[in-house]
């Protein structure tokens, strides 16, 4: 299956040399906050709007793709040690969200795409990076 080209048997992304800046580039998004020193790479992509669902994921360096433009996305991201949060559809963010991201040290990105399209764009980029051609 094509999908397996970018994920190993443990569900960890392969070719994962993707920083938050790179993610923003792929998604034509804006990085609203990121620590200069933070060079973490995407370990796993999680696309979810339900926080309990995110908490269920057992992986490091999660990139959280969500439509939930609220402080809770950031708070949940901190709990699971996420490496970044992307909010979709250019949703306006509550004023507090950026400051929560800064306080908790969670990189925050907004992008114009729907979550489905972000998934697909990231998937293609990851496949390209891991050197496998689509079949």
């Amino acid at each position: 299956m094509f999908y397996r080209h970018c994920e190993d048997s443990d569900g960890r992304l392969m070719g994962g040399e993707m920083t938050v800046d790179k993610v923003a580039e792929i998604l034509d998004g804006k990085v609203l906050y990121k620590d200069k020193e933070d060079e973490r790479h995407v370990g796993k992509v999680v696309a979810s709007d339900l926080m309990s669902d995110v908490l269920l994921v057992d992986a490091d360096d999660i990139l959280l793709l969500t439509s939930l433009a609220s402080d809770q996305s950031i708070r949940t991201a901190q709990i699971v040690g996420a490496m970044g949060v992307v909010v979709h559809n250019n949703k306006p963010l509550p004023a507090s969200m950026l400051s929560v991201a800064q306080t908790l040290g969670i990189p925050l990105v907004t992008c114009p795409y729907a979550k489905y399209e972000s998934c697909v764009r990231l998937y293609k980029a990851l496949c390209a990076e891991s050197g496998s051609e689509e079949q």
Binding site: C6, E7, A47, K115, Y116, C119, V120, Y123, K124, E134
Partner: peptide
């Protein structure tokens, strides 16, 4: 599958 994997699969 989770939402990301399912989305990737459908995109194919």
């Amino acid at each position: 599958y989770d939402q990301f994997s399912a989305s990737c699969r459908l995109s194919e």
